[in-house]
Design a protein around this nucleic acid. Structure first.
Lengths: 212, 212
DNA sequence: TAGATTGTTAATCGATTAACAATC
DNA sequence: TAGATTGTTAATCGATTAACAATC
């Protein structure tokens, strides 16, 4: 349906979709089955007009005089994001951050963590809910033998680019990067960064320039 | 200098500053002392025009016919972000993610982690480089007795809002939130979110809609 | 039906890019 | 000086908001 839209939807819109989904889930858990853009505006802090514009990039999910069905819209937004699909995921780097991410992924349905790699001998062989941490040297072979959709990089800065190269050569569709650098990936691979420092520094700026 | 600028600088600009800083640090480490906006454009993927516009929100740091001095600009950008200041930081929630964040903070100069709180009896009393994890019940008292600038929330969703309330009542200037919800904070408090799910879902979208 | 609220077009606003005079 | 590159103004582009006809 929304897959053959002519025009590319802007990243600003895409980055608001998870927020809509989150709000809708919250409404659902409160037993609310119907919501207007006006009310959703109050909840999210975005304008009603923007919400309607955003959603209409993908289809007319509402009904005049009524609003939106919460459960239906929740499913639609999930579908747009691709959360009704399955992803095979590999994690490289099992330090504190890697462990946190691995743990976080455990209860994300659709994102199936199939292997974890590290170079630290103290970590290799340890287990996380049935997944044994493998020696990093086995990554290339694993990539050849398995179809991996998403590679997560939670290594330190110095090895991140070479890990990224291996994952890309191994055919990943996307990289979720936690290392504090700007990776270079082939055009065909999608890169999503979680730069903790960028976030912290932005916070510092606004602490010192509040309201300015 | 840049503190009495009349007009508020847009968030888009602020969020690019850490990237500039990162690139400048990289240049510095390669022994490069001078850079033009054109060359910086090549490195960052942003346009030269945008880089000059961005920097000129805060002052004229360059020199016609020459470019920018890398070391000087690096310091200027750090100063704008407030990285020449000290921040007293408290962490609430010492699960996987909290531990990862605490560990990450250890080598961030200027951000001084002074206390860690959790409710889990198995975690209370454990130590991280000299900081003993305290019982969460002591948070209010700690806030009364110490000036805390930044509160980090790495608890689960269900307790995040009440933890946030405590931190705000305790006088924090900013909240760095890792819990997957939209906190409500007083106007005077700055909120910065790290929503892992939002990031992962965005990645999923682009994996399925590459180039679209 | 009358009231409510969407979907969508038009207007506004803000951010990015282009151009170029100033100047090192 | 001549060449290079900034700082800044003007032009363009894109995103947000406002308005309202369509319609449930």
């Amino acid at each position: 349906m929304y897959s053959k839209e002519k025009q590319r939807v802007s990243p600003s819109v895409i980055r608001r979709l998870p927020k809509y989904r989150r709000s809708l889930l919250e409404l659902q858990s409160r037993g609310i089955s119907r919501i207007s853009s006006k009310e959703l505006s109050r909840i999210t802090g975005l304008t009603a007009s923007q919400i309607r514009q955003d959603l209409n990039n993908f289809g007319g999910f509402g009904q005049q005089g009524y609003g939106y069905n919460v459960e239906e819209l929740f499913k639609e937004v999930g579908g747009i994001l691709g959360l009704d699909k399955e992803y095979n995921v590999v994690l490289v780097g099992f330090g504190n951050l890697g462990q946190a991410v691995a743990n976080y992924l455990q209860n994300k349905i659709g994102f199936n963590l199939s292997a974890i790699f590290d170079i630290n001998p103290n970590l290799i062989g340890t287990e996380l809910r049935g997944i044994t941490v493998q020696n990093f040297s086995g990554l290339n072979q694993f990539m050849r033998e398995n179809k991996v959709d998403i590679g997560i990089i939670a290594t330190d800065k110095s090895s991140a680019q070479s890990v990224s190269n291996m994952l890309c050569a191994g055919g990943v569709k996307g990289i979720w990067n936690f290392a504090p650098l700007d990776l270079i990936v082939p055009y065909s691979v999608v890169l999503e960064n979680v730069h903790l420092s960028d976030s912290l520094y932005t916070l510092a700026y606004y602490i010192n320039n509040h309201g300015k």
